[in-house]
Simulated assay, not measured.
Amino acid sequence: MSESSSSTPVEHDGLPEVIRRYLTVHNRGDASASASLMTPDAHVTDDGKTYGGLPAIERWLDRAASEYTYATTCLGAAQDGPDRWTVTQRLDGDFPGGTIDLRYAFTLDGGLISRLVIAP
């Protein structure tokens, strides 16, 4: 199996600090603190839409924080490459369906998040 196709499971505490901080402030709905952990040219894909650059990402974060109320549970995490990590979280809330498991695929650059893809 090649290195690019393998993942190494990690505990939540084994995730890079920037990812742990992002998950904490994002789950609190703090858009400004979430965006501060991203590179200026970062891209986020969520619900099939991609947001590029910090102004667009901050608008997405503000909307996401106010749209629904939910609680999260970390189901697992893995390192997918030198600068790539995936975290799976369960969201329980007042959105349609009430419960969903989402994968947050992070790419880091210089200690910040340069790419985030959120998908079921």
Rank of each mutant, 00 (worst) to 15 (best):
M1I: 14
S2A: 14
S2P: 12
S2Q: 11
E3P: 00
T8M: 11
T8E: 12
T8K: 13
T8H: 10
E11F: 06
E11S: 13
P16A: 05
P16K: 03
E17A: 13
R21V: 15
R21P: 04
L23S: 11
L23H: 13
T24R: 14
V25H: 07
H26R: 12
R28I: 07
D30E: 12
D30F: 05
A31E: 06
S32W: 00
S34K: 06
A35Y: 03
S36I: 06
S36G: 12
A42C: 04
H43N: 10
H43R: 15
V44Y: 04
D47G: 12
G48Y: 06
Y51K: 06
G52K: 13
L54V: 11
L54M: 01
P55M: 01
A56L: 01
A56H: 05
A56C: 05
A56E: 08
E58N: 04
R59W: 00
R59Y: 00
R59H: 05
D62N: 15
D62A: 13
R63T: 14
A64S: 11
A64V: 11
A65L: 06
S66F: 00
S66L: 10
E67Y: 00
E67N: 11
Y68I: 02
T69K: 15
T69F: 08
Y70P: 07
A71N: 14
T72N: 14
C74P: 10
L75E: 13
L75I: 11
G76E: 04
G76D: 04
A77M: 06
D80W: 00
D80L: 14
G81R: 05
G81Q: 04
P82G: 13
D83M: 07
W85Q: 08
V87Q: 08
Q89S: 13
R90E: 12
R90W: 02
L91S: 14
D92I: 15
D94I: 03
F95Q: 10
P96M: 07
P96K: 09
P96Y: 07
G97P: 10
T99V: 15
I100T: 15
D101W: 01
L102D: 07
R103K: 13
T107E: 10
L108D: 02
L108R: 08
D109F: 03
G110H: 08
G110M: 06
L112Q: 12
L112T: 04
L112I: 00
I113M: 09
R115H: 11
R115A: 15
A119Q: 11
A119L: 08
A119N: 11
P120H: 06
